[in-house]
Design a protein around this nucleic acid. Structure first.
Length: 619
RNA sequence: GCGCCCGUAGCUCAGCGGAUAGAGCAGCUGCCUUCUAAGCAGUUGGCCGCAGGUUCGAAUCCUGCCGGGCGCACCA
């Protein structure tokens, strides 16, 4: 087999590559192709924010710097002993050589929290505990209720390119693409909502030697028949058939090889056939994206072929910069800090993915003027991206303030602790996985709420099923592997999407009833009253939304958002359990509790929307 | 051989320099003539892989081991 027939390009977004030639599969790699605010507190102008911790941190910072004589981090955190605590006094004490409690007391003496906190105390070795004033929480929560953005300030707008999903043309989306697609879409949604200018980049594997045999197979079938086969959705079967012919029929293999040459030299007819394959694949991808509720559109497809014309000039440019060094017949860059080369041009003259990735960086920073490049690709490719980024820096294509990040993630494992595969050992197709998710959810919905009419049951099953899959993918630290477990992800209790969706649906139910009982007129919101501990705790939880969203936008650790939403839902259900809303003791309390409910619903809905999970109104 | 990641309750996971290590599931106790019990409240359960070190203070930082996963030049 000629070396150029080694494998499909692309699939770089797959968490782990298909079997390599020396792994447990014991099969050569070339046989593996088919698998594979402003805070509106009274008298506070717009520069304040809703963020409790930021408000406190600012006040504490003033007090700390008064004591320290210079700026000092107050280390304000959420506390289990009070609402918040500042831990900075311990570190400052060491610096000043004074007893920590004494320093803490000095800080408290300089602290101005009038109207914000009604209880400040020094505890333990020198922690400063703060309990917020109920009036302040109430006013803050009321302001949140009146803020369409729930306290999250809109950003000035960086241009961010989010590179995710990246399936291979002529192969179907499979579990290996799930995490990149889900995490990438959550990234795009979140950054976009924050006000950034997000460019979604679906870096398809749409170029390479395999297209020789694919195109010849297509010609054998006839374009019409081939298009039919492809549109039926079984792209993998099309590839497998082509591959089988290539292996069995030398004449076919020769045609395939010359077809590759024709493709690479730009033969118009060959390019037309190639586009046909690409177009059919894209239709297949879009169908799965639609089911998944992923925001990728045809405009976001920007495959490897897009960069083809840029590759030769790019290598020349690297040469001109003196970064290129021949090694064993290949053109290489040896980025600083790495002992192995980045092969930019292969010995046979072809370009590999490092060249394409470099071209993409240069295009994205220079043409798209991107400030931030996010690559949502499995963690095995960490070193590759570090090398590419370093090379781009040395070439001047990735210069401050622009930054590139590899957002890696672990594998999805089966119950056996090994990479998830179907019973027969094949990769699991995404379309089939989602169908099963919805089917399983449908059974649960039918059992839990048979009163819903069939259409609504189906809609709920869809939201719950797909939500479960996405949530399971996002709820853990993305760097770790996780075990794919239907029972756990579809559990109606616990840390699941269904629990959040159910909480949301319950709130909607109450709100619907409130409108009925108010004879169609929505009640005017009164001031919020936080008299019970449950109401207070709920308000406090709701006020944390902006903090979490901002952190997630920076770290892209979506499990922090899902964990936060769980705490909000938990605070709500505790409140729901102990505080009658519609039958509240007075109209004022009722209005306040309805306000808290409405705010909770909005936070849950917005939070889930940021990660692409749908919230049905009934379930 | 070099490098990266992960080892926390029976299970799945948070916490990543600060007070008694948290949550969900599973187990056990309670709670529906009342707004969706797909729920809530309580409870049992942990030498935070091991050993050193840094620090007033370490699950958290450093070093070395052990265990698991994954990379390491013409596949993408």
């Amino acid at each position: 087999m000629p070396p150029e027939y080694v494998g499909l390009r692309g699939d770089r977004r797959v968490a782990s590559r298909p079997c390599s030639s020396r792994d447990e599969c014991g099969r050569p790699a070339e046989l593996e192709l088919g698998r594979a605010v402003a805070f509106a507190y009274p008298s506070a102008p717009r520069e304040r924010t809703f963020l409790m911790i930021k408000i406190l941190a600012a006040r504490f910072a003033a007090a700390f710097s008064a004591v320290a004589g210079h700026p000092f981090d107050p280390a304000v955190r959420v506390s289990q002993f009070s609402d918040f605590q500042a831990n900075g006094a311990l570190a400052l004490a060491r610096q000043l050589g004074r007893p920590p409690r004494e320093v803490a007391a000095a800080v408290v003496a300089h602290l101005d929290l009038a109207g914000i906190a009604d209880e400040v105390s020094v505890a333990g070795p020198g922690y400063i505990n703060v309990n917020m004033a109920a009036g302040f929480l109430a006013a803050s929560a009321a302001a949140l209720l009146g803020d369409a953005r729930l306290g999250v300030q809109e950003r000035a707008g960086e241009r961010v390119v989010v590179d995710y999903s990246g399936p291979n043309v002529a192969k179907e989306l499979h579990v290996g693409h799930l995490r990149s697609t889900v995490i990438g879409d959550a990234t795009a949604r979140t950054l976009e909502w924050l006000g950034h200018d997000v460019v979604r980049a679906n870096h398809l594997g749409d170029w390479g030697t395999p297209f020789g045999l694919l195109i010849e197979h297509l010609l054998d079938l006839g374009e019409t028949a081939a298009a039919h086969d492809l549109s039926v959705g079984d792209l993998d079967a099309f590839y497998v058939a082509a591959r089988a012919k290539f292996d069995a029929d030398p004449a076919f293999a020769d045609r395939a090889r010359s077809r590759v040459v024709a493709l690479q030299s730009g033969d118009p007819e060959t390019l037309r056939l190639w586009r046909l394959l690409v177009a059919e694949s894209e239709r297949s991808f879009l169908a799965v994206y639609a089911t998944l509720g992923v925001t990728l559109s045809p405009a976001d497809f920007q495959g490897e072929s897009f960069y083809n014309p840029m590759l030769a000039p790019l290598v020349s440019e690297l040469d001109g910069l003196g970064l290129l060094r021949p090694s064993e017949g290949a053109q290489c860059v040896f980025p600083q800090g790495f002992s192995i080369p980045l092969i930019v041009r292969k010995r046979d003259g072809g370009f590999g993915y490092p060249a394409t990735d470099l071209a993409a960086i240069r295009y994205r920073t220079q043409e798209l003027k991107a400030d931030r490049l996010v690559y949502v690709v499995g963690s095995p490719q960490h070193q590759h991206f570090e090398m590419v980024f370093q090379t781009a820096r040395e070439a001047g294509w990735l210069a401050e303030p622009a930054r590139a990040e590899h957002i890696g993630f672990g594998q999805i494992l089966g119950a056996d602790g090994r990479k998830l595969a179907s019973r027969s050992g094949d990769t699991v197709k995404l379309a089939a996985l989602l169908t099963e998710a919805v089917d399983r959810a449908a059974r649960i919905v039918a059992a839990k709420n048979p009163e819903l009419d069939p259409a609504e049951q189906a809609a709920v099953a869809y939201a719950v099923g797909v939500g479960a899959v996405k949530y399971a993918d996002l709820a853990g630290d993305r760097i770790k592997d996780y075990v794919f477990d239907w029972d756990r992800m579809l559990s109606t209790t616990g840390d699941t999407a269904a629990y959040l969706q159910y909480t949301y649906a319950r709130i909607q139910s109450v709100l619907r009833r409130s409108e009925e009982s108010a004879s169609g007129v929505s009640a005017v919101e009164g001031p919020l009253l936080l008299d019970s501990s449950a109401e207070r705790a709920l308000a406090l939880a709701l006020l944390g939304f902006a903090d979490v969203v901002e952190e997630v936008a920076e770290t892209l650790q979506f499990h922090k958002l899902t964990g936060y939403l769980q705490s909000v839902a938990g605070a709500f259900t505790a409140f729901y359990d102990s505080c009658p809303i519609l039958r509240a003791p007075s109209p004022e309390v009722r209005a306040s509790r309805l306000g808290l409910s409405r705010l909770t619903a909005r936070v849950l809905r917005q939070g889930l929307d940021l990660v692409g999970i749908v919230t049905p109104d009934r379930m």
